[in-house]
Amino acid sequence: MPVPILKQGDCLIASIQSALTDADLLELRDELSERVGRYRSKGVIIDVTVLDVLDSFASRTLRTMAEMIRLRGAETVIVGIQPEVAFSMVQLGLSLDGVTTVLDLEEGLAHLDRSRRARVAHAGG
């Protein structure tokens, strides 16, 4: 099942709606990388609130996604990891090192907004 991707200003929001197969996740990875270029996006939010499992493949793919998007010039924020999902990830030995994770969509948008202001201040100074 494909993941809807919304464009909001210079951000993209991928809002996962249901459990994803490996193929779905890889498709999302390629789609986001392509759209960052098409829309010249600076930030990407991936909302995983509905995911009830983040296993080794999903964690690895999210890390890969964030790195690909970074290489394309945008910042990725993962939002909505549920407490029990976080617990299972830690037990399993998984991490999302190097990827920004925040509580929810609101925090994700606020984070990207701060990054945008920092960029503007840097360019202006």
Binding site: D52, V53, D55, L92
Partner: peptide, 17 residues
Amino acid sequence: GTTDVTMIATAISELAR
């Protein structure tokens, strides 16, 4: 409970992989 259910589901996922 939810935490145990999630651990079981995650274990199933890894074993199936």
